[in-house]
Structures are given as structure tokens and as C-alpha cells.
Simulated scan of single mutants.
Amino acid sequence: MARKSPFEWIKEKLSEDKHIESVEVVNENLLHINRDNETLIRVAKTNLDRFFYKDIKEILQENDVDFILHTSKEPFVDGSAYEFLESKRKVLGGFGDLMRVASQERNWPYYPPNVKFIKRGLEQHTKVTNVRRLDNKRYEISRIGLETVVIIALDDYDLGIESIRNAAEEFDAFDAVLKSNPNGKITTSAIEHVDSRNIKVLKWGELLGKLNLKWK
């Protein structure tokens, strides 16, 4: 039995959604989704696993789409790409993100649930003046009268030393690791590792409390 293409899989899944009027595979890299409120989602597919401003610009120049679907499981996305997407009111995401956008009445705004939770929580903090996504894992937090802080959000159930080491190798500098998954634990070895690097590892409530204080 032939394996379904990504667009065929999406078409099959969305056929179960009562708010989707039709799904048209225009070509192997372009999909149109019509909602029952007559709004259209134009989707372009890409197999890139790293995204910068120039990549998003090239994709949007080639196809005027609302959603860029990445087929990589967890690609690197630079902050310049996010800023350009915001300015154009476009979305970059995976299959789950596309399903959630399709369930909305409009294409924009949209943030993945974990990003939405972190951004909204930080932006509502009384000491925070601005939150900027540096890439798909890191957030730069500007504060009133206090140092700017960079955190990296890791979604592991049990946050261990290997995840933190991998994050340090893949991403630029950060001041703290946020365990963004509310379940599970932070291992002792992970705590000892970040302590040796003068980096904090924090759960959500601990981060909010720490943002009221001088960092170092």
C-alpha cells in the first residue's frame, strides 16, 4: 500500500472537520483549504530544516500563501524569520499547527499553544516591558530597571543533563533554562550542570518570581 503524501494525509484528516468546506491539492507543494465561512488558507510545503528571513521571503515570493508547512519534526527558526512572518501576518508551523489554524475562524494571529502560554504569561508580568523570540527555543525578556534576560524553553517531561547540553551546543547563549512542561521533574544532574555554568534551571512559577529580582 502506497504511503500517503503529506497533503493527502491533511486532506483526509480535514474531511472530518465540519467547518471545512473543501481541500484542494493544487500541486505537490501547494494546498488550498476552504472553511465554511468562506475564508481560504493557502498552504505551501517545504522540507527545509532551518529557517531564516531570506528563506521565508523566498517562499512567500514564490507563492502568496498564508501558512508555510514544514515537514521537519522540529526545525530551527531564527528570530529574523519570526519577525518577517509577523510583519506579513503569515504562519510557519507543522501538521498540528495547520490543524489548529484550520479550526480557527481566521488565519492570523496564531501561536503554538506552548509559545502562546509563555509569551502571554511573560508579557503580562509587571516587570516585563518586551518579549522577543530569538529563535524557536529562546526568548529575550526586557525588564523595567533590571537586566535583560534570555531564557531557553525545553519541553522535556523529565529534564535531564543531555537536553541541556544539546541546547547549549545548538543555540547561542542563554541565562536560564525554563522547564516549560509542567509535568515531570528536573534531574539532579541537570541542576548540578547548570549550576556549574552559572545558568539557572527554573519551572514556570519560579521564573515569574525571579523576574522581579536582579538576575546576578
Rank of each mutant, 00 (worst) to 15 (best):
E38W: 08
D175R: 05
A44L: 04
E62W: 06
Q124L: 07
A153W: 00
V149G: 03
T71E: 00
D64R: 09
E147F: 01
N198V: 02
M99C: 13
N47F: 03
E28L: 06
W9T: 15
Q61F: 14
V201Q: 00
G96A: 11
D172I: 00
T126D: 15
I41R: 00
D55C: 05
A190M: 04
P112D: 15
E140G: 04
K54N: 14
D36S: 14
E21I: 00
V91W: 00
V201Y: 02
V201A: 09
A176M: 05
G145C: 04
N63A: 03
Y157W: 10
R138Q: 06
D158C: 12
F67A: 01
S72G: 08
L69A: 09
V131G: 00
N29F: 08
K13H: 07
L60A: 08
R132E: 14
D97G: 10
R106T: 15
K127P: 00
V91Q: 01
R120V: 12
L31K: 09
K137E: 06
R35F: 09
H193I: 01
N130I: 04
I41K: 02
K210A: 15
L211K: 01
G160W: 02
G94K: 07
R138L: 09
K18W: 06
D78R: 02
F51E: 05
P6I: 15
N198F: 10
R50L: 12
D155N: 10
D155W: 03
E192A: 15
D195R: 11
K216Q: 12
F84D: 09
